[in-house]
Computed example of a mutant assay.
Amino acid sequence: MTSALAPHDRWRPLVMGVVNVTPDSFSDGGRYLGAKAACDHALTLLDQGADWLDIGGESTRPGAEPVSADEEAERILPVIEAVLAVRPDARISIDTMKPEVAGAAMRAGAALWNDVTALSAPGAAELAAKLGCHVCLMHMRGAPRTMQDAPVYDDVVTDVARYLGQRAGAVMAAGVARERIVLDPGIGFGKTLAHNLALMAALEPYAGLGFPILFGASRKRFIAAIDPSAADAGDRLGGSLAAALLAARAGAAMVRVHDVRETVQAITVQAAILEAKDTGR
């Protein structure tokens, strides 16, 4: 792994803060749609300890409607430029399925292409190789509009691992260096509660696949399936922290979260406890 994708240490993954420049994201749709609001939020997340920012201009929530490449680029490019003008050291990921948007984002200063379709669009892998960027290959069953329509797997852990391995092989064959690839099992993307729990229970073996693992469960709907009182995404902090702590113990390289300050604190405290346990203090 390169230093950009390597966790801080054994128990402390990198923390990626979510910046949704959209009107309809499930967790905070519309709050940061304007460039200034999104930039201010991004800078706050950096101050709270985010190692990466994941900036997206198109919602991938269940049932989300697609937007054009031009509209998506118009949402995210001013935010990337504004953040880097203030914090030129910021590490920025672009959350997009569209190669043209990813290319524009990299030219604006982004360094990681986070793609829920695992660079499956025509020419995407070749473009990533040409750009020389880091890539996150995520598993998703179907498309955002239909992914939660009764998803079925033979064995979700095996099926997702096989898919990610195949996509990593295809992307490397297109010229992307192995050390620039991170994998995401796609919690909540075309999975039932049982599927999500099975993947989380198998996260430690996933971390042994030979690629760093990015884990994203923050505020997702499976938490409400376990705790019906958390119907609103803003009421899922506890469940989000539990999942992030699990990922840290399992060896994930990075956790993608909305609540950066709370996640950094929880992971740091857990790491201190686990390190004390290791040393017998």
Rank of each mutant, 00 (worst) to 15 (best):
S27P: 08
H139A: 12
Y163T: 14
R162G: 12
V152S: 12
I181C: 04
Q270I: 08
D54G: 06
T192F: 08
A4Y: 12
R167K: 15
A108G: 03
L214W: 13
T2S: 11
R167F: 08
A50I: 00
H139M: 11
A125E: 13
T158N: 08
R87F: 05
F222P: 06
A242P: 07
A198T: 10
G210L: 04
A90R: 01
G142H: 07
I181R: 00
D149Y: 00
R87P: 08
L137N: 02
L119C: 14
A194S: 14
G238L: 11
D28F: 13
P122D: 15
A225K: 15
L193T: 08
P212H: 06
D89C: 00
A128M: 02
Y32P: 03
P144I: 11
P7L: 05
A242N: 04
G165D: 12
L112N: 08
A125S: 14
P7F: 05
G57C: 02
K191V: 07
M97H: 09
L45V: 07
G30W: 10
V255Y: 07
G30S: 08
D28A: 14
A231W: 15
K277T: 14
A129T: 04
A225R: 15
G57D: 03
G132D: 00
A38Y: 01
T268K: 11
L193R: 10
A207N: 13
D51V: 04
A111P: 00
L199E: 01
M172D: 13
L164C: 00
A118F: 09
G188F: 12
A129Q: 04
V157Y: 08
Y153R: 14
L241W: 04
H258A: 06
P228M: 04
G109Y: 07
T2L: 13
A110W: 03
T268S: 15
S120P: 11
T192H: 07
E74S: 03
G56F: 02
E275C: 01
N196E: 02
R249F: 01
Y206A: 13
M138E: 14
H41E: 11
Q166A: 00
R256C: 05
L197I: 15
A252I: 05
G49E: 10
D70R: 15
G216M: 05
A202G: 05
L5P: 02
V176F: 15
E262R: 02
V79G: 01
V257P: 10
Q265F: 01
A244F: 08
R167E: 11
G239I: 10
G30C: 09
N114I: 09
D47K: 13
Y153E: 15
G239Y: 06
L77H: 05
A168E: 11
A128H: 01
I80V: 14
K130V: 09
Q270A: 05
I213D: 06
G216S: 04
V157I: 13
A161V: 10
A224V: 02
A73F: 00
K98I: 00
W11N: 11
A82Y: 04
V182G: 05
A118L: 06
M200D: 03
A253N: 04
Y153V: 10
L245T: 05
I273C: 06
R221V: 13
A82T: 05
M1R: 00
R12G: 13
K277M: 10
G169I: 09
D149Q: 10
P88L: 09
M254S: 09
D159F: 07
G188R: 11
D259G: 00
F215D: 08
A104I: 03
T263L: 06
R219M: 09
P205R: 04
L46N: 01
A244Q: 12
D184E: 13
G142W: 07
V101S: 03
